[in-house]
């Protein structure tokens, strides 16, 4: 059982869309959100873009579409690699393995900013609240917004 900090839980619940699919109702009860719920801010993505250019663009290319060695971080490739997994997993992977030649060499906040930049590049909408250290495990990278009533 994961502990969800109080204030975050409130935000999480307030942002969850009403859902029709019954399978998704369980996740709602866990306080889960998706990347369609405005989970990062424009400003955070902006900062992340600069940091991405410094630390990641050499391999994943300025437009995030990858290179000879490194996968694309946008579009079909991103959905294929990360669809239906959580931002927490993605954050962990990036922090522990990237950049491959200097893993875990950036402050956690920088990795979160870069994550916001990747989300924006995949056309997920920004919101009022930036990505924080806590709660990433509760955010699902779903390919499409949930169906709305």
């Amino acid at each position: 059982m994961r502990l969800i900090p109080g204030p975050l839980l409130v935000i999480a619940i307030s942002l969850v869309h009403p859902m029709t699919a019954s399978g998704l109702q369980a996740t709602q009860a866990d306080g889960q959100r998706t990347v369609w719920d405005g989970v990062y801010t424009e400003e955070q993505a902006e900062r992340g873009g600069v940091q991405y250019t410094e630390s990641c663009a050499g391999c994943h290319a300025p437009d995030l579409r990858g290179s000879t060695t490194s996968p694309s971080l946008v579009g079909m490739s991103f959905t294929f690699l990360w669809g239906e997994r959580t931002l927490g997993e993605l954050f962990g992977k990036i922090q522990q393995l990237m950049p491959t030649d200097r893993p875990n060499s950036l402050p956690a906040q920088t990795y979160r900013n870069i994550l916001a930049f990747i989300l924006r590049a995949n056309s997920y909408p920004p919101g009022d609240q930036g990505l924080e250290a806590d709660g990433l495990d509760q955010i699902i990278i779903s390919a499409k917004p949930e169906p709305r009533p």
Binding site: D63, R65, G66, S67, T68, T69, S70, P71, S72, G75, M76, S77, F78, F80, L81
Partner: peptide, 17 residues
Amino acid sequence: FGPTERVIGGGGTGPVR
């Protein structure tokens, strides 16, 4: 192995989990 977009600018190695 996963898919990529067949458009100019796309392609690449293709993703692999």
